[in-house]
């Protein structure tokens, strides 16, 4: 059995390392070794599901996950619904029991998005759950729950309309003591579908000629709002998400194929465009929303 070690911090940055290892791994019997992993966020969890599915799709006979059962992160994964979501993708020893009565601190457990009604169910859930977390933890105004629901609705529709494959979404808040001194909400959405390049190729590749690539496809969708549909009303979703994220002083990054594009901020400096990443399929979106600045700024 070949071993792929998980990073100690399996978050929106650490997942890049794991994706790179997965791309270069020979499909075989594989062990994803997370015994030294001490932190995981929604991007890490969803990315880990994506890596498991990717390895299985490439023909890996078995993909086994091992976490340190004594570490908090194992229980946290259970509370976020990770083990349930990974059924049929990853094998693992008996997972920690889902800690009863503690799910109230989870904003959005890992949720599979495969059809229109999943988005409706998600928004229903957010309307019940998100209000108190957005207002008490992030100190956003009461109206933010609607805007937040709209963001999640649009970003999940991106999976349904463009990926051609099911995906996952999850969200949770964290205390970023060192980097920001405030709470940050991390939203992750990912799928193993055709990616931005694949989605736009038939309609737009011709005009880019030899320049057509993952990065030009991301720029076309993210910056210019292009889609594969001729309908002029399409492509607004991601533009409106960017606008709202900017208003809240947040960050949005979209990784697809071997490139990543981002709207950054002074507290989380993703490069605006990265190329030459490991060529991992699908689209992986991370949104970071900081707690409202108590002094009024963002």
């Amino acid at each position: 059995m070949k071993v792929l070690e998980l990073p100690s911090s399996l978050d929106y940055r650490g997942i890049e390392e794991l994706m790179a290892r997965a791309v270069s791994a020979e499909p075989d019997k594989l062990l994803l070794d997370g015994r030294r992993t001490r932190f995981v966020d929604p991007a890490g969890m969803i990315g880990l599901l994506g890596v498991g599915r990717f390895l299985r799709n490439r023909g890996a006979e078995r993909v086994r996950l091992q976490m340190d059962p004594a570490a908090e992160v194992a229980g946290y994964l259970a509370r976020m619904g990770f083990y349930r979501a990974s059924e049929g993708i990853l094998e693992f020893d008996t997972p920690p029991e889902r800690a009863r009565g503690r799910s109230s601190d989870v904003l959005l457990e890992i949720t599979s998005i495969a059809e229109n009604q999943d988005v409706h169910a998600l928004v229903e859930h957010l309307q019940e759950r998100a209000g108190s977390i957005l207002s008490k933890t992030l100190h956003y105004p009461p109206s933010a729950v609607v805007q937040f629901s709209v963001i999640l609705s649009e970003v999940c529709q991106n999976i349904l309309e463009h990926a051609g494959a099911p995906g996952w979404v999850a969200a949770q808040t964290y205390q970023w003591s060192r980097r920001l001194g405030r709470q940050v909400l991390v939203i992750a959405v990912g799928d193993l579908g055709r990616g931005f390049r694949g989605s736009l190729e038939s309609e737009h590749a011709g005009r880019f000629g030899a320049r057509w690539s993952d990065s030009t496809a991301l720029e076309a969708a993210f910056i210019h709002g292009l889609t594969r549909f001729p309908d002029q009303g399409r492509g607004q979703g991601i533009q409106q998400i960017r606008k709202q994220v900017r208003r809240w002083g947040g960050v949005i990054a979209v990784r697809s194929g071997s490139a990543r594009i981002a709207d950054t901020s002074e507290w989380e400096e993703f490069p605006p465009l990265e190329e030459g990443l490991a060529d991992f399929p699908g689209a992986w979106i991370t949104i970071l929303l900081p707690e409202a600045d108590p002094e009024g700024g963002k």
């Binding site: 609607v146 629901s149 709209v150 609705s153 529709q157 009303g233 399409r234 607004q236 409106q240």
Partner: peptide, 15 residues
Amino acid sequence: VAVLDYSCADEVVAK
């Protein structure tokens, strides 16, 4: 209507 997203606004209002 409690929540109206951009896709739905496009379909219901714009179209």
